[in-house]
C-alpha cells in the first residue's frame, strides 16, 4: 500500500496523471463535437499531419534552411492546413466530403514525413516517431503546461460556443438562414480542434490521442441522450481508459497508450451493446399492439381468400 502512495510523489508519475486529466478534458471539449459533426476520422488525420509537419520542421532546422524552425511549428501549421482543407470541403455541411478531404491530407502528410525522414540526421529520427508513439510517462514540464493551456482554451470555447457548434452540426442550412455566421463557427471548431490535437500529439503521441479523442466520444454518443451528458461521460470514459493504462504500464511493463487505447475501444463495444439491448427492450414493449393488428390482418386475408374461392366456383 505504501508503495502506491510513494508513486504519487514521483514527478514523472504526477505529470502523467495531470496529463491524463488534461487529455480527458480535450477529448470532452473537442472530441465530442468532432463526433457530432461526423468527423471522428479527422483526429487521426490531424495527428498524422502533425507528424508530417514535425518532420518538415526538423528537416528545415537540421538542413540549415530555416535554423530557428521548431518541429512543433511545422506540426501546428500542417494541422491547421488539414482543418482548413477539411472545412472547405464541408462548407455545404456534407460530412462525407470532409472525410474524403481528411483521407487525402492524411496520405499526403504521411508521405511527406516518410520522404523527409531520409534527409533528417538519423539521430533525430526517433523524435519524429515520438509524435506517433509518444509516452505519457516521459513528459517534461513544458509539455504539461502546453497541454494545460490547450485544455483551458478549449473549455472556454466550449462554454461560450457549444450551442453554435451543435447548431452547425445539426442544421447548417437552417442556422445560416436564421442569420448565424455558421461558416465562421464551422472553421473555428475545426481549427481549434486541430490545434488541440497537434499539441496533445506532441505531448503524448498520436496513438493515445486518437484512442482517447474518438472512442470515448463515440461510446457516449451511443448511450447518452443529451449533449451535456455526452461531454461528461466522454471525460469519465477517457480518464478511466488512461488511468487503467497507467496502472497497467506499471504492473506489467506495457505501453500506457496501448492499454488506454484498448480499454477505450472496449468501452465503445460495450456501449454499442448497451444501446442494442436498450432498443430491444423498447421494441418488446410495443409488441402486443403489433400482434393485435396482425391477427386482424390474417382474418381479412382468410376472408378474402374464401371470397376468391367463391369466385372460382361461379
Amino acid at each position: 500500500m505504501n508503495e502506491i502512495f510513494q508513486l504519487f510523489t514521483i514527478p514523472f508519475f504526477q505529470r502523467a496523471l495531470i496529463a491524463s486529466i488534461l487529455i480527458a478534458v480535450v477529448a470532452s471539449t473537442s472530441g465530442s463535437f468532432l463526433v457530432f459533426r461526423g468527423l471522428s476520422f479527422m483526429t487521426s488525420g490531424v495527428a498524422h499531419a502533425a507528424l508530417g509537419g514535425a518532420a518538415l520542421g526538423m528537416f528545415l532546422q537540421y538542413s540549415g534552411i530555416v535554423p530557428w524552425f521548431d518541429p512543433i511549428l511545422g506540426a501546428l501549421i500542417f494541422s491547421v492546413l488539414v482543418a482548413v482543407v477539411t472545412g472547405y470541403a464541408g462548407e455545404s455541411g456534407i460530412s462525407q466530403k470532409m472525410e474524403v478531404a481528411v483521407g487525402v491530407s492524411f496520405a499526403l502528410s504521411m508521405s511527406i514525413a516518410v520522404f523527409l525522414l531520409h534527409y533528417i540526421p538519423p539521430t533525430q529520427v526517433p523524435q519524429v516517431w515520438g509524435y506517433l508513439i509518444g509516452d505519457i510517462l516521459l513528459l517534461d514540464n513544458l509539455d504539461v503546461i502546453l497541454l494545460g493551456g490547450t485544455a483551458a482554451v478549449l473549455v472556454l470555447i466550449a462554454l461560450l460556443f457549444n450551442k453554435e457548434y451543435v447548431y452547425v452540426s445539426v442544421d447548417m442550412e437552417g442556422s445560416i438562414a436564421h442569420g448565424l455566421n455558421a461558416r465562421a463557427y464551422h472553421y473555428m471548431m475545426l481549427i481549434t480542434s486541430a490545434l488541440a490535437i497537434a499539441f496533445a500529439t506532441k505531448a503524448v503521441g498520436a496513438i493515445l490521442v486518437y484512442a482517447i479523442m474518438v472512442a470515448p466520444a463515440a461510446a457516449s454518443n451511443e448511450i447518452m441522450r443529451s449533449v451535456r451528458g455526452v461531454m461528461v461521460t466522454v471525460f469519465i470514459f477517457a480518464l478511466i481508459s488512461e488511468i487503467v493504462g497507467l496502472a497497467a504500464s506499471l504492473a506489467i511493463q506495457a505501453s500506457p497508450s496501448a492499454i488506454a487505447g484498448i480499454i477505450a475501444a472496449l468501452i465503445y463495444v460495450v456501449s454499442m451493446q448497451v444501446k442494442r439491448i436498450r432498443e430491444r427492450a423498447a421494441s418488446n414493449q410495443d409488441f402486443p399492439e403489433v400482434e393485435d393488428l396482425s391477427e386482424t390482418f390474417h382474418e381479412s386475408l382468410s376472408a378474402s381468400a374464401e371470397q376468391a374461392h367463391e369466385h372460382e366456383h361461379e
Binding site: 457530432f36 461526423g38 455541411g93 451543435v166 452540426s169 445539426v170 442544421d171 447548417m172 442550412e173 437552417g174 454518443n221 447518452m224 441522450r225 443529451s226 449533449v227 451528458g229 455526452v230
Partner: peptide, 12 residues
C-alpha cells in the same frame, strides 16, 4: 437536412 447523430432533445 437535420442531423440525427447528435443527442438533441425536442426542447433543444
Amino acid at each position: 437536412q437535420i442531423g440525427l447523430n447528435i443527442p438533441m432533445k425536442v426542447k433543444d
